[in-house]
């Protein structure tokens, strides 16, 4: 018996960048998981359109007959960077862009990687805007929001700060895999312990 059935991460355009199955009956094939992920992306967007009040940010929890789906979306607008830009570095930034042809965002990320500073980390968050994380679990499984936050942290730490990772591309980072399975394992132990 598994409390968590599967985990999906989709990028801001609805492409599946990470999928892991933790023991659901009949594993989904690659095509289906891609289609399910992009379907979820559009359903999430439509649910915002149908909101009776302003400020809707999409489905957070879907309660189906045999499972619950918890969804967490990282910040939709890159709000943080403007206040965090260190203007003494503008020159350096311009040089970086001119020499490498990379965007300022990747420079931000690289700064975060190299210095490990707090502001670099916050910018990495901004770069991940619109990424959706969702877990499929047994109905009524508690603490899924906090688990999603933990997974998000792992993502920023081990994926976004990985200098070889390209944004919006499928995640193939060993450290992320290791830490993720540890987090899920811990969650499972905590559930059994109750």
């Amino acid at each position: 018996m598994a409390a968590i059935y599967s985990l999906y991460i989709i990028n801001k355009s609805g492409g599946l960048i990470f999928y892991k199955d933790y023991g659901s009956a009949g594993r989904m094939d690659t095509n289906d998981s891609l289609r399910v992920a992009s379907l979820w992306h559009s359903m999430h967007a439509i649910s915002q359109q149908l909101s009776p009040t302003t400020g809707c940010s999409g489905i957070e929890l879907l309660e189906a007959d045999t499972f619950d789906l918890h969804c967490f979306q990282s910040l939709t607008a890159p709000r943080t960077p403007s206040v965090l830009i260190d203007f003494s570095k503008l020159n350096e930034m311009a040089h970086y862009e001119a020499y490498t042809g990379c965007t300022v965002y990747s420079w931000f990320r690289r700064c975060g990687v190299l210095s490990g500073s707090l502001w670099g980390c916050d910018l990495a968050y901004a770069g991940a805007a619109g990424t959706k994380f969702f877990v499929v679990c047994e109905p009524g499984t508690p603490h899924m929001e906090s688990l999603l936050k933990v997974i998000y942290e792992l993502y920023t730490d081990y994926v976004l700060k990985n200098p070889f990772y390209e944004m919006e591309m499928p995640i193939r980072c060993e450290l992320f895999d290791i830490n993720l399975s540890q987090a899920i394992q811990k969650d499972r132990v905590a559930l059994l312990g109750r």
Partner: peptide, 14 residues
């Protein structure tokens, strides 16, 4: 097939 009975966003519940 498996259906659903509700979903929740930050502004409403269906």
């Amino acid at each position: 097939g498996c259906s659903f009975h509700s979903f929740r966003t930050n502004t409403y519940k269906l």
